[in-house]
Simulated assay, not measured.
Amino acid sequence: MVIYLVMAAQFESFVHPFVILLSVPPAVVGAVLALKLSGGTLNIYSEIGLVMLIGLVSKNAILIVEFANQLRARGAALERAVLEAATLRLRPILMTTAATLLGALPLALATGAGAAGRRQIGLVIVGGLVVSTSLTLFLVPAVYRLLARRSHHPEPAAYEPSSPPVCEPESSVAELR
C-alpha cells in the first residue's frame, strides 16, 4: 500500500501505479512455479530474490508507463502513445532482462558449498523474469490503454510549448499496424 501511494504521488494519478503493480503478480507466479518445479522452498533466500524480482519487473512497467505519459503530455493520442511507448521501450526492457537472466543463471545452477541459498535466489529471479517479461510486455500496454482513458492529463501546452513532439507522423504509426 505504501509503494502504491508513493507511486501515486510520483505520477499524480491513482491509475498509473495500478498499471505498474499489475506486473508483479505474473513475476511472483513465475518465481513460485520455478521453486515448485525445482523442489525449492520459500525461505529467506528466495524472499531476497523476490524483492529483487519485484523491483526489476516494476522498473520495466515504469519504463512503458512513464514514456507513454510523456508522449501524451506532448500531445500524442492515447493509442499512438501506448504503441510508441511499448515499441520504443521494448529493446531496453529486453536488454535489462537478458542481462539479469544471464547474471542469475549461474546462481540458479550453483553447486558446492553454499549453493542452497544461491540456487533459491537464482531460481526465483530466472523463473519470475521469464514469466513476467513474456506476459507484461503485452499486459502493461493493454491495461494502460484501458485505464488511462479515465485519467486526467494536462493540456500539452502546460508542459513544453516550444518543444517539438517526439512522435513520428501519423502515417508511420499506421505502417506499424
Results as ranks from 00 to 15, higher is better:
1 M>V: 12
5 L>D: 09
10 Q>T: 08
18 F>P: 06
19 V>T: 09
21 L>Y: 05
24 V>F: 04
25 P>E: 05
27 A>T: 12
29 V>H: 10
30 G>Q: 05
30 G>K: 00
31 A>H: 03
32 V>I: 15
34 A>Q: 09
35 L>N: 09
37 L>S: 09
37 L>E: 13
38 S>E: 07
38 S>C: 05
40 G>K: 02
40 G>S: 06
42 L>M: 13
48 I>E: 03
50 L>D: 05
62 I>S: 03
63 L>K: 00
65 V>N: 08
67 F>I: 07
71 L>T: 04
74 R>G: 15
74 R>T: 06
75 G>Q: 00
76 A>R: 00
85 A>K: 01
85 A>P: 03
89 R>F: 00
89 R>G: 05
90 L>N: 07
90 L>Y: 10
102 L>Y: 10
103 G>K: 10
108 A>W: 03
108 A>V: 03
111 T>C: 07
113 A>L: 10
117 G>Y: 08
119 R>G: 08
119 R>F: 01
121 I>S: 03
122 G>N: 08
124 V>N: 02
127 G>S: 03
128 G>V: 01
130 V>Y: 06
131 V>Y: 00
140 V>P: 02
145 R>K: 11
146 L>Q: 12
151 S>A: 15
152 H>D: 12
152 H>S: 12
152 H>R: 12
153 H>Y: 14
153 H>C: 05
158 A>R: 13
162 S>G: 09
162 S>D: 15
169 P>V: 06
170 E>H: 10
